[in-house]
Design a binder for these strands. Structure first.
Lengths: 136, 136
DNA sequence: CCCTCTACATGTAAATCACACATGTTCGGA
DNA sequence: TCCGAACATGTGTGATTTACATGTAGAGGG
């Protein structure tokens, strides 16, 4: 019977009585991850699919969304694509980063550094607080 | 004339030809920020509204969402609230962190530390890449 | 009485995300 | 030769979160 399990993009979910599993992720982190991979070398969707988990920390990447993101990036001039039939296997759409894409990746790096600072402050303030997690 | 400006939760937006403004934020970062403030001392919504920007780096906090989050937290037993009429001015709903809330804050801290590691790896890999942002 | 500030709250559209499902190709083994 | 697994590219859809607009009501000053 479908539809009876965990659904949606919840960042916090109950895993027991008074127990919560929390996930802290940067919004749209898939985009800079994609850009970084493409800055290293052109690749096709399925290829990226296999390289992404190491960067994002996710176990599995959603293919559907990956292809949608790639198309959106192309619409915005961040990447370009071309079909490749010469390689063995099904034909692939190879994506490549544009100069604009490289600038965007630089922007992401700046923004991520800024966020690292913010979260560091948060954690420092938390740790200074003392009297923390009570026993379950 | 309403409805003609930038709307929505976009993390990236065009600010010029080939120029993008990027924001890197942790998903639902408002929640741990709220929990940290409440772990320091009980407070009412409007009070939190004024303390949050320092923690989150946002200029202004959306009141509507703040109160929605607070109610959701109360539903889940993370905070409790009580009305206060004795203080001058409009009566306030004072929020206080529960033990479960303290555990959740601990969970957020762990998750945020994990994410810091992930983003650090990303930035290291980016910086190792050399040949970066081309001139505009 | 009227206006502003404080305080709490709802309505709604856009963006993102998780999950399910559709479609075709290539290749190795039974 | 047929079958299934892995490769490769997508579409459909509802849940969640966010940004912004708007609504309600009491307190306090002039």
């Amino acid at each position: 019977m479908r539809g009876h399990r965990f659904r949606g993009a919840r960042a916090r979910r109950r895993v027991g009585p008074g127990e919560w599993a929390v996930r802290a992720r940067v919004e749209r982190f898939g985009e800079p991850a994609l850009l970084l991979l493409l800055s290293e070398r052109p690749a096709h969707g399925y290829d990226l699919l296999e390289q992404l988990p190491e960067l994002t920390g996710e176990r599995r990447i959603d293919m559907g969304n990956l292809y949608r993101v790639l198309r959106a990036l192309e619409e915005d001039g961040i990447v370009t694509s071309a079909w490749r039939d010469d390689a063995p296997g099904p034909s692939k759409r190879i994506y490549e980063l544009t100069d604009e894409g490289r600038r965007l990746l630089g922007g992401w790096a700046d923004a991520l550094r800024a966020n690292q600072g913010l979260v560091s402050s948060f954690l420092d303030r938390y740790e200074k607080g003392g009297d923390h997690v009570p026993r379950t």
